[in-house]
Amino acid sequence: MAKSRAFDVRRQTGFVPLALLCFAVLYLPIILLVVYSFNAGQSIAIWEGFSWQWYVKAWQNEKVQDATILSLIIAASASVIATSAAVMAALATTRTRGFRGYTFVFALINQPLMIPEIVTAVALLIFFAMIKVATGYTGLMYLIIAHSAFCIPFAYMPIRARLQGMDLNLEQAGADLYGTPWRVFRRVTLPQLWPGVLAGSMLAFVISLDDVVITEFVKSAGQDTLPTYMLGQMRRVVTPEVNAISTALLAISVALVIAFYLLSKSGTQTNRE
């Protein structure tokens, strides 16, 4: 009996169905969530026809509007602050032979990735409560600083990767051709670092936009972001309005993640800015 197919060394029984199941599991809930945001009825399980009504409702909901604006303000500020700090930190920590304190710096920068968010959230709740009592200030800065802190490692990673992949000779060539350190940074380093900076700031933006736990603990009264607003809503009867808000947030995140992917793909192929 002749074999119909060549022996495939890579095949493992059952792996392909399991993998496809994995993708199905990952996407099915999200797809259903998106689909039912367009449901004409109240239900999130019975399809009653297509409608934009939940989007309109969400759009007209003043609390949603306020939360959206707050989310965007915090994400934008935290992204700018975290990215600037990350660029400087990356410049100081890459392309150098280890220096005293390197382990400390590395651990500190990556700390938000290692420590459970709830612990940091509790710590900030206590710490900021002390400051709030001492100064009386209850504004947005607490949230912005807290978000900046946990966004730093996310901004740092792609920038650092980009810097490490960069040819040191290029900066030396710049210095050799009469460029002062600042001009070399501006004309040679930064243009090449740019995709990394952009990618890092987008990651930071997404991470800030999506945060629930730390925001929930740090926020003062009336400072709801979209995620904390939604968390509050989930205790009640859920209407597709939450689906609509979720879909909008999803769309922003997915767009940014795909942009990030394309940016990091462009890799060494830098174009003129």
Binding site: D167, N169, L170, Q172, A173, G174, A175, D176, L177, Y178, G179, T180, V184, R187, V188, P191, Q192, T268, T270, N271, R272, E273
Partner: peptide, 28 residues
């Protein structure tokens, strides 16, 4: 380095990838 009247041709050329040929030559 940027104040010395010498220029270097680097081993792997170190041409600026974000500039054209002419821009590279005019950089100094």
């Amino acid at each position: 380095p940027y104040a010395r009247p010498v220029n270097t041709v680097f081993q792997n050329y170190a041409l600026f990838p974000h500039m054209t040929v002419a821009q590279n030559i005019g950089f100094g």
